[in-house]
């Protein structure tokens, strides 16, 4: 490692440098352990500081509770679709359904009562006179 110097002035110094290199202090196991322990401590602190702050867990809301009870988002979507389809059929039934509806109502109510004339909620006074 020592650089040779050709100058007479420094003749012989190289020999001292070589001796100095040969007798250089070595890294002891104890010092190595201390330095590595420092490294581990600094590393742990740095990694801890770099972690994102933990996000507080929120309690699940009513919607999530209901959704989970039914079976999740898919089940809720299916249920909603069926509900909307039923409403749509009620308000605006397709023309092809009319003969089927008529035949069922006739078999239940007879020919004399039409579905439109059926009173599903009788007047309260009729109930009172019977009581």
């Amino acid at each position: 490692m020592a650089m040779a110097d050709t100058s007479d002035e420094f003749d012989g110094l190289d020999a001292f440098f070589e001796a100095g290199q040969a007798e250089a202090p070595a890294l002891s196991d104890a010092l190595l352990a201390r330095i590595v322990a420092d490294a581990a401590a600094v590393q742990a602190a740095a990694l801890q500081a770099a972690k994102p702050a933990p996000v507080a867990r929120r309690r699940p809301g009513l919607w999530h509770t209901l959704s989970a009870a039914i079976g999740g988002r898919g089940a809720v979507a299916g249920l909603l679709s069926a509900t909307l389809a039923g409403l749509w059929l009620g308000f605006s039934p397709p023309a092809q359904l009319a003969p089927l509806t008529r035949s069922i109502s006739q078999s239940v109510l007879g020919d004399t009562t039409t579905l439109d004339g059926l009173d599903l909620i009788p007047a309260i006074d009729t109930v009172l006179t019977e009581g």
């Binding site: 330095i35 581990a40 590393q43």
Partner: peptide, 23 residues
């Protein structure tokens, strides 16, 4: 590597650099 959490990197860096600094 050390900064990213590698445990062995510190030991190897110490073995490389600390003797020079010590001398």
């Amino acid at each position: 590597l050390y900064a990213n959490g590698d445990a062995e990197a510190a030991r190897l860096l110490t073995l490389r650099l600390a003797p020079r600094v010590l001398r």
